[in-house]
Amino acid sequence: MSVLVFAENRNGKLKKTTFEALTAGRGIADKLGCELLAVVLGTGISSFQNELANFGADKVVCVNDPMLENYSVEGFAKSLSEVVAAKKSSVVLFAATSLGKDLAPRLAAKIGAGLATDVTALDVKNGKLTTIRPIYAGKVFATLEFGSEIQVATLRPNIFTAAENPKAGNVENIAVSPGNIKALVKEIIAAAGKKLDLSEANVIVAGGRGLKAAENFKMLEELAEVLGGAVGVSRAVVDAGWRPHSEQVGQTGKTVSPTLYIAIGISGAIQHLAGMSSSKFIVAINKDADAPIFKISDYGIVGDAFEIVPSLTEELKKVL
């Protein structure tokens, strides 16, 4: 038996969420009394050994294969299914990144495993995984139990804290046959000027219709820059064409759980809250004292964003 964590890498670097998943996996492996394995697919991947060992991997399973250099859901699922069989894994964990969310269900279907996506808590009960996941856009928390022998879960980013826990992490090379791949990533287009993705940001400065025009988001970018965060928006802003949908937070946008979420000129509609109410600290800046966003905020300032935001940015520059 083993717990397997999928180690996601992009541009020669492991993702931060991989360490979160490893730490969560370490806890599960200890409870089950089995080994924790990290699995890496692609080429030039044995260089990740030290980092994976440092975050708790007893073993690092490397599948060195040029067919896996670019992501394909078919090739990755087929390869992982062979690793799961070879290592008799009973629990397989992914971070709920765009890749993890795409891949985990396909693997689960292939190996007949039960699946829990976007999990915010996990534990072991009667030798099996149990998980909690938000559904109905976070309006409900559902506890899931598994009937299947193998259990697959994707973990929501920023919920599980990564902790170092050095283990041997010896490399084991496994050969697989990625199979017949009929859809393959040919190219990656980076969004212009964007450094940090919303789902990975620790601080999000979000703006709503109250900002009144596209050019006023410059003000939010400056605040986000000082805080080392990213800019998010409400749907009203996307609908107005001021910012792209990739920045939308909410039920039909992204679900985020940063340490700090600053909502500026956002009223706090239920669909917006759905995407951000699991943030650790929420600050609201709104000129309407009755705006629903204040009901779920830790701190609020009632006032005009056009006065408050620039002064907040200036003051923060002095102390950070």
Partner: peptide, 30 residues
């Protein structure tokens, strides 16, 4: 079912926080 919902709960709603006087108070609290 390979994965089954055994319990549903409504998450505790976040409690309403403090309305602060201005920027310096906010920075102090954060």
């Amino acid at each position: 079912a390979k994965a089954k919902i055994v319990k549903m709960e409504i998450p505790a709603s976040r409690s309403t926080g403090k309305i602060l006087g201005g920027v310096s108070e906010l920075i102090g609290s954060l």
